[in-house]
């Protein structure tokens, strides 16, 4: 771990560190583009959506709601709820970027995703440094790949009738599973039991909360509750 501290934190290193996550963006982007076309959107509209909204799960939901002709207010409100978790991701990353300008912070914040957060949090967790250039390399690689994948998916979507058959949508869950395991890798042996307890508590909290609220809200509530339990039970 000591040797890692010397590794240079360039824009290029950020691009390199993004590479393992790209297959996730590509497969989910393909699926999002295909579903967009199936929901009656044009390729250009799908491109705009991936450029401006830039959020996998939310784009699926927007397409689904557009297909069922939901009112605009309902679509926008649902998107807000689904993407509210980014607040927690940004809040975790933001303290590490305070020395940079407002615009730089805005640029980094605007492109925070579950995956780029996972990679960056992995470094923070391991007490490795992160900086603006590295984060921009990571973020921009993911962003460009996402837009391109959505557009390609939309173009291909005209020929593929059942995108689910390829299992591409599961790439997202598989990626979260890998990111979680990689996070756990860096947990000290003495803290491992504590973290396993918190994970089991999360599973229970998610299931119980799902009786009362939507899964997206359950993600936020369960995380807030269990992270608090984590602080209280930490020795």
């Amino acid at each position: 771990m000591e040797t890692a501290a010397k590794e240079e934190l360039s824009f290029l290193q950020g691009i390199k560190d993004c590479v393992p996550t790209l297959l996730g963006y590509i497969s989910i982007g393909f699926a999002a583009g295909m579903i967009g076309v199936a929901s009656g959107l044009t390729v250009l509209e799908i491109a705009f959506m991936s450029i401006f909204v830039y959020a996998g799960a939310a784009q699926f939901i927007i397409c689904g709601m557009l297909a069922t002709a939901s009112p605009a207010s309902a679509i926008i409100f649902t998107t807000f709820i689904v993407n509210l978790r980014h607040f927690l991701l940004s809040a975790t990353l933001a303290p590490h970027f305070t020395k940079y300008s407002v615009w730089k912070n805005a640029g980094i914040g605007a492109l925070v995703t579950d995956e780029s957060f996972g990679v960056a949090a992995g470094r923070i967790f391991n007490n490795k440094p992160i900086n603006d250039r590295w984060m921009n390399g990571l973020n921009l690689t993911a962003y460009i790949t996402w837009i391109a994948s959505c557009v390609v998916g939309a173009v291909l979507g005209k020929w593929v009738s059942e995108p689910e058959k390829f299992g591409l949508d599961f790439a997202l869950t598989a990626m979260f599973a890998a990111l979680l395991i990689l996070q756990m890798e860096s947990v000290k042996a003495s803290k491992l039991k504590h973290y396993v307890m918190l994970i089991l508590l999360m599973v229970a909290a998610m299931y119980i909360l799902s009786f009362f609220v939507s899964v997206d809200l359950a993600v936020i509530f369960a995380t807030v509750i269990v992270a608090t339990v984590g602080v209280v039970t930490d020795k």
Binding site: P95, F117, Q183, A222, T223, A227, G230
Partner: peptide, 15 residues
Amino acid sequence: LSFIPVCILTALIVG
């Protein structure tokens, strides 16, 4: 905040 990564990744998987 240090507990957020593990919690939220678990939440997304369970979700």
